[in-house]
Computed example of a mutant assay.
Amino acid sequence: MANLNAYVYNGEELEVSASMKEDFNRDGFIIVRNLLCQKELAILEEALQGPDSLTAYAYGNDDGDGRKATMCLWNHPGNDVTGAMARTRKLAHTAQELLGAEVYHYHSKLIMKEARTGGKFVWHQDYGYWYNFACLFPDMLTVFVAMDACSPENGCLQVLRGSHRAGRIDHGAVGNQVGADVGRVAELEKCLDKVYVQLEAGDALFFHCNLLHTSSANNSDQRRWAFLTAYNCNHNSPYAESIHCQKTTLRQLANDAVLTTGVNRNLSGKDVVMKQDGKYVTLAL
């Protein structure tokens, strides 16, 4: 298996070492194993179940092959356990250290690839979208936390190592989705290592907003759920309003905040993004 730039969380403060920064800057990503323990995963799982949970606001995106990847998306952390998780130092402070500047919560989402039906995502960069949301610089990253084991069979992420150094690539229609220029991606595939990001539940991938990534459909009998939080540097707050928020104060919490918050479904203040008639709208809760 290719080197995955993997580190292991020991349950205390997550120190961002020089080697972590070097890996992130060179390759565009690092992995932190065991970032969430089994009890934290169980709390998160329970909080996302039921008609009063965030999953009530989920919507599906057709991948062009008759399958859908379902997601729910929100702009502000809010007061529930998912907000507590996004504010933990092991996510937020680590993101800040990797980017080298103070950050705020740009948005979070839950991506649900169900067994046998979960759809694919074409090659893209997050900044390929966020550039159009009035963010001037690619000073942003995403933390992908696996709620289930992620494998090639159930549609784990694939990344092109070091592709963030190619800069922002033009994005446009690729089938039924918006993705990176297919010709340019094809050339980058010839010279960069494609990595299948295989994770266990509780592992996390921190990746740069210009890192090219894709994922296949879930052809297995195992679902693939993931919790993602995007952080933006304070100095990079969008210059105009868009579907995601401008700079807000991020109050970071202790690393055990999920455990102390428990199963909390109080969705007030989250500003959920919904898809209606092909357009994105925000719903203040």
Rank of each mutant, 00 (worst) to 15 (best):
D271P: 00
Q96D: 11
C245G: 14
M274G: 00
Y106S: 13
D52Y: 02
A69T: 15
L285P: 09
K90T: 10
G50H: 13
C191Q: 15
Q177K: 09
V178K: 12
Q49K: 15
A240P: 07
L98T: 04
A95V: 07
Q276I: 15
T70P: 00
G50A: 05
S108Y: 07
Q222L: 13
G83N: 02
F29E: 08
T214M: 10
G118Q: 04
Q177M: 14
E45I: 00
V174K: 00
L228R: 01
D181T: 02
N218W: 03
N25H: 14
G118C: 03
L48T: 10
H244A: 12
L212T: 05
D126V: 06
P51M: 04
A257C: 00
S215E: 01
L54C: 06
G100R: 10
L253E: 14
L4Y: 08
Q49R: 12
W225M: 08
K109H: 10
A254C: 13
P152V: 13
T82V: 15
I111H: 10
A180L: 11
G50C: 06
A149Y: 01
S17K: 14
L54A: 06
L44P: 05
C209A: 15
A6P: 02
L48Y: 07
C135H: 15
A146R: 03
A217L: 00
E97G: 12
E153P: 00
W130T: 04
Y196Q: 11
G262K: 05
G179A: 09
A95E: 03
E12S: 10
G155M: 04
S242R: 04
A204E: 10
L35N: 01
N176F: 09
V258E: 05
N75H: 06
Y106M: 11
A86K: 03
V273N: 03
G119D: 06
N154A: 09
T214W: 02
Y131R: 14
V81G: 04
